[in-house]
């Protein structure tokens, strides 16, 4: 079991997440893709913690999870309220804040 595979998997997941954020319009999907990117990063942190034999990476991964949980709460609340007012969850339709 080489750590490289974990890193490759993590890179793959991150890329899928990033591409998802850029190309999908549905806010929920975009949101899930962001979660995917966060978890890819978590995987990287844990992998390096394993390689180096220290706990720093794992501790950091916990922080990320906490922040992600909080973010989900806030984010979903925003998406819900946008949906209630505009009857859509498309990020391209929520474009009032511009020049």
């Amino acid at each position: 079991m080489t750590p490289t595979y974990y890193l490759l998997l993590s890179a793959l997941l991150f890329t899928i997440g990033a591409v998802g954020v850029l190309v999908r319009r549905n806010a929920i999907v975009v949101f899930m893709c962001i979660e995917l990117m966060l978890n890819a990063v978590n995987l990287t942190l844990v992998t390096f913690a394993r390689i180096n034999g220290t706990l720093d990476g794992q501790v950091m991964a916990f922080f990320v999870m906490v922040v992600a949980a909080a973010e989900v709460v806030v984010g979903l609340a925003i998406i819900t309220s946008i949906f209630r007012t505009r009857r859509t969850a498309s990020v391209d339709d929520a474009n009032l804040l511009k020049y």
Binding site: A18, L22, V23, D92, A94, N95, L96, L97, K98
Partner: peptide, 17 residues
Amino acid sequence: LRRLQTGFVRSYALSML
């Protein structure tokens, strides 16, 4: 310059990337 502020979140995300 302010024309860059299109209001499309995904273009901001692209520039961040």
